[in-house]
Structure formats: C-alpha cells, structure tokens
Nucleic acid binder design. Sequence first.
DNA 1: TAGATTGTTAATCGATTAACAATC
DNA 2: TAGATTGTTAATCGATTAACAATC
Lengths: 208, 208
Amino acid sequence: MRRMPTYLHKLRLMKAEGKQYASCTELANYVRVDLIVVRKDIAMTGLAGHRRYGYRIDDLMEAIKRFVGWDQRLTATLIGAGALGSALLGYPDFQSYNLSIETVFDSDPLKIGHEVHGHEIYDINTIRQRLQLAPPKIGILCVSNSAAQQVCNQLVALGVKCLWNFANVCLQVPPEVIVQREVIAGGYAVLAAKIKASQENGAIASEE
Amino acid sequence: MRRMPTYLHKLRLMKAEGKQYASCTELANYVRVDLIVVRKDIAMTGLAGHRRYGYRIDDLMEAIKRFVGWDQRLTATLIGAGALGSALLGYPDFQSYNLSIETVFDSDPLKIGHEVHGHEIYDINTIRQRLQLAPPKIGILCVSNSAAQQVCNQLVALGVKCLWNFANVCLQVPPEVIVQREVIAGGYAVLAAKIKASQENGAIASEE
DNA sequence: TAGATTGTTAATCGATTAACAATC
DNA sequence: TAGATTGTTAATCGATTAACAATC
C-alpha cells in the first residue's frame, strides 16, 4: 500500500516524458524493488495490462488512485501552522491526491491572520464557529505533543471522524474514529536498525 | 520495528510519572495494539521481565534502544533548511535517540548565515570543504525533488554511506549506500484506504 | 488460592518470492 | 521464431494471533 504513491510518482514523471506505456520492469528499476513485487502490486488494483507493451500509463494511474481511495475528494482542516504544518501546506502533491486543506488554525497570535502558502491562518478559538455546520472529513494535527489530545477532542466533538496525527502521542479516541499516526522517529528507527545490521553483516541488500 | 519508538515514548512518560515498572498491558492500552503484540515485541529485545510486576522501565528503555541501534551515537548533516528541515531541527527527541545533527546546509542566500534552532546554516557550496575530512554518518535530505539526486551525489562523493531522504524521489545510489526514504503521501494513502474500507464496511453493516 | 503477569509453543494469515505458462 | 512482457499458481517466510504453561 505504501508503495502505491511511489509508482504514481514515477508514472507522472514518465507521462511528462511523453510516454504512453509503462512496464513493471521500468517501475521496479526506479523504485529499487523486485520486478515481481511491482507485478503483484499492480495485480491488486485489478488492471489488465498488455503483454509485450506493459500498462497504459493513464489507465494505471487511474487504477492506482481508485485502489488507494484517491478517486474521492476529501476535505481537511490543518491545526498548527508551525514548521511542520507549513511544510504540509507547501506540499504540492496533495491536490493531485484529491486532498483539499480548506482551513488552517493556530493558537499563536503572531500567526493568526497571516497567510501560509495561500491559506489564511484562523484563531483556534474560532474553530467551533467556523466548522460546526460543515465539519471536514479529516483533521490534520501538527500541534505540540502537549496540545494534541485536547485539539483532538475538539475535532471529535465537531464530528471529525478521521485524524492524521503528526504529534508524538497516541490519541485516545472513540472507536469509530480513524487515526493515522505519523512517527518521524519510526523512520529513523528503521534507518538505525539498517545501519546496525550492515555493520554486523557487512554489506547486505537494503530492505524495508 | 516502527512500534519501538512509541513504546519508548510511553516509557518516558511513565518514568516522568515516577513509575519504576511497566507491564505489557499498560503499553498495549496506550499504543492501542493487542497485548500479545507488545509481549512479542519486547521478547525480540531479549529482555527478561518480572512476572506479576512487568518490566523495569529503565531496563526496558535500554533494551529497546540497543535493539533499535540507538545505543550508538550517529552524526548527521542536514541539507535544506526549508519548512521541513526546520521542523526536523526543532524536533526535540533526536538527542535522546543519539542522533546528532552537526551541520546544516542550504543554497538560499536569504538563509545562509542565519540560525535555525541553534544551528547555523552554511552555504551548500562549502559542503565539500567543511565535511571532506570527517564526513558524517548520515545525510538528511530535505531539499526539493529536483535538487535531491544532485545533492545525494555530492554526499556520496564525500563518503556519506547512509541517507535519510524526505524528497519525493527514489535516489539512485551505489549498492553499499543505505537509503531510508520517507514518503509523506504514503501515510495519506494508508489513511485514505482506511477511510474507503470503513465506508464499504459501514455500508455492509447498515444493510443488515 | 486467586489473580496478574511474563514465557513458550503452535496455528494462522498475508506478503513475498519463485517458477513457469500464456501471449503479443 | 525469439524476446519481452503480463498472468497464474505454488512455495516460502515472517509477522500476527491464539492457547496455554509457568510463576510471583
């Protein structure tokens, strides 16, 4: 599942080069993964390819988007316009993933009223008034660890059912709420473990 | 592996509360994962617990750090002091993970010479001169997609053998170089797929 | 003894890998 | 025909889950 966006990314590059067809081999070489993995991943989307030519790039992009759930538009609010929040607001690909960040909130008076990447930053205290009539599908939390649970509670009270949490805490939520937690340190743990393994085994093939 | 940092995080919280022992049950409740998963994960570290009391928090933290490879200090240089790079520089936990970001480079004249979270930003053109005698273990790439491969080549030429790549490209590197790629969109793909699945299951449930 | 906990072994499941068939 | 590619089936492996034993 986590490989899908990378295929999509490569397919966009290939399309920009004017290509019409993509083969598993090309994708595999780029992603640095075994040929067979790509074939299996594509098979999961249910798309049929053309032997000898590969897959039509447009069809494959559509199929991947459908499989991942990016064919439906999702609305979001982003809480916390610090460095990480700003980085997300500047991320150019969300649009093509059909994610629309419609509002941005922060508690810092120095930030409120200013714009970041075209998004005006609202006062967190106005969140209820602004969102209660039409709560967004997703809440993106880029706040401090200490504020995360409280902000989470506010969002859940407003009817937000999906959270994308970048704070380093495990949010306690009702069972029907979906939480996707991003752990920066998780990637570093994987890297450190790879380094340790390579020291012990000498050179080994890189693995996830 | 990716769960380990979260356990560590909870253990730190518990230690701050003055506790000495932690049980799998407590960790499982916090991480929202099955009891048995935690037990297996801890078993991987090789630490023996105390029946009825659980694990000594200090011992468990040590064991996890050793298992993940965070018992050895790793040096790093960070390239690209944009929003994402700044967010990483402000991340307070790297110190406790034994990751030491020693230098920061950027190409933007407006940033060079300034400080971010106590790190002076150097001109990317001086990287060779500054790092060639003692290259860091890890290069952290927070640059644009278009610059990533070129910066990567520079780092590899300097002898950097491990890369933590936040740019949305697959770096082409010699086989002995370890790359850990972070894909922001990957987390969003997982979230979107969860949402899609819940809608389908919800529809099935409501038909009954 | 009862209860809470870790420890261990076996079963299950899903993802990965391998081998080969089909086809343009 | 030869070669490149997708498609399919089986084997393998590792992670997860389940069940129960041991022990304080």
